[in-house]
Simulated assay, not measured.
Amino acid sequence: MNTDTAYVHGYSEREARRLGDQADALAALLHAGTAYPAGSRVLEIGCGVGAQTVHLARNSPGARIVAVDRSAESLAQARACLSEQEPGAGVEWLLADLHHLPCDYGEFDHIFACFVLEHLPDPGLALARLRHVLRPGGTLTVIEGDHGSVVLHPDSHHAREVIGHQVRLQAAAGGNALLGRELQPLLTDAGFADVVVRPRTAYADRTKPALVAGFTLKTFVAMVESVRDEALGAGLTTAADWDLGVAELRRAADDGGTFHYTFFKAVAVNPRR
């Protein structure tokens, strides 16, 4: 990631757990169809604490994965996470910024980026950097969410307000929590070809208790809750209104509640010159 960009969710132990819960709860949904051939060189951008790396390595055991992040602390956590969950996986860890990758032109056959572009002030520039290290004919897979896709029951103005505060805080930090809807034009404008974007819908109700716990509560609600201090400090809301909004958001995880969210998964090709 760009070193000038703040990660709005922070680097706490709680955030590391949330990322792990998110990756595990959504692994089947987000990683379905992503498996790289044995011997292929795969670059994972912004691997963070390794939550997605575990599933990449599990689905492509013969691929040579290089996982990159700008945080040495996150890479240490990622290494430990992989050692515990996929002890036989051979992943190379690289401390580097996305805009200054110590990689050669066309070095990788495939690039994987999950929940990375949404935190960058100029995702188009980042994609240009990635094209440089992706071989002609190689593929780029990008997964992003879109907080504007939330549909919840019981519906609540107050719950939508706290979600909106998170979106505004991410924008103030240089990111875009609504990026999922923009992937097709973004990748096309960056020079990629054969761009295919498919929505991946997460829907949770009482018949899916694992998804209610792992996604609705431990992923989405936890993400919103984590920016409470920032929202109050920025004067976006009052403590009473914030707490009411979160309480009503949590009702979507009750027995009579439902929660819907759409992720967007794009696969594109670096055209041959």
Rank of each mutant, 00 (worst) to 15 (best):
residue 6 A to N: 10
residue 218 K to Y: 11
residue 209 P to A: 09
residue 111 I to C: 07
residue 193 A to S: 15
residue 109 D to P: 09
residue 8 V to M: 14
residue 150 V to H: 07
residue 30 L to F: 10
residue 205 D to N: 14
residue 109 D to W: 08
residue 164 G to L: 01
residue 108 F to G: 05
residue 254 D to R: 13
residue 135 R to T: 02
residue 32 A to M: 09
residue 224 V to N: 00
residue 116 V to C: 11
residue 206 R to Y: 13
residue 264 F to M: 10
residue 172 A to F: 13
residue 135 R to W: 00
residue 27 A to G: 02
residue 35 A to N: 02
residue 204 A to V: 05
residue 108 F to P: 04
residue 272 R to T: 15
residue 70 R to C: 14
residue 165 H to Y: 14
residue 90 G to T: 11
residue 169 L to C: 03
residue 168 R to D: 14
residue 60 S to W: 01
residue 129 R to G: 11
residue 204 A to E: 05
residue 68 V to H: 00
residue 233 G to Q: 05
residue 85 Q to T: 00
residue 183 L to R: 04
residue 56 L to V: 08
residue 21 D to S: 14
residue 133 V to T: 03
residue 151 V to T: 11
residue 23 A to Y: 06
residue 208 K to E: 09
residue 184 Q to I: 13
residue 199 P to Y: 08
residue 72 A to S: 07
residue 44 E to D: 04
residue 38 A to L: 10
residue 229 D to A: 15
residue 73 E to A: 15
residue 51 A to T: 09
residue 273 R to C: 11
residue 59 N to P: 12
residue 156 S to E: 03
residue 249 L to P: 07
residue 40 S to N: 00
residue 36 Y to V: 08
residue 136 P to G: 06
residue 22 Q to H: 12
residue 122 D to Q: 09
residue 82 L to P: 01
residue 14 R to C: 11
residue 132 H to G: 14
residue 221 V to Q: 10
residue 96 A to D: 06
residue 19 L to R: 00
residue 155 D to R: 09
residue 150 V to S: 04
residue 38 A to I: 10
residue 173 A to L: 02
residue 249 L to W: 06
residue 269 V to G: 00
residue 169 L to S: 06
residue 44 E to C: 09
residue 248 E to G: 06
residue 213 A to K: 05
residue 94 L to A: 02
residue 169 L to V: 05
residue 253 A to T: 01
residue 192 F to A: 02
residue 262 T to M: 14
residue 183 L to Q: 06
residue 27 A to M: 06
residue 161 E to A: 15
residue 10 G to P: 03
residue 24 D to T: 15
residue 161 E to K: 12
residue 98 L to N: 01
residue 227 V to I: 10
residue 146 D to E: 08
residue 266 A to I: 09
residue 121 P to S: 08
residue 106 G to N: 05
residue 33 G to D: 02
residue 109 D to A: 11
residue 75 L to T: 02
residue 245 G to Q: 06
residue 26 L to P: 01
residue 82 L to N: 01
residue 251 R to I: 01
residue 153 H to E: 13
residue 51 A to W: 08
residue 177 A to I: 01
residue 157 H to L: 13
residue 1 M to D: 02
residue 92 E to L: 12
residue 221 V to K: 04
residue 227 V to K: 07
residue 51 A to E: 02
residue 13 E to I: 11
residue 214 G to M: 10
residue 47 C to W: 06
residue 239 A to N: 13
residue 215 F to N: 06
residue 149 S to I: 03
residue 34 T to G: 12
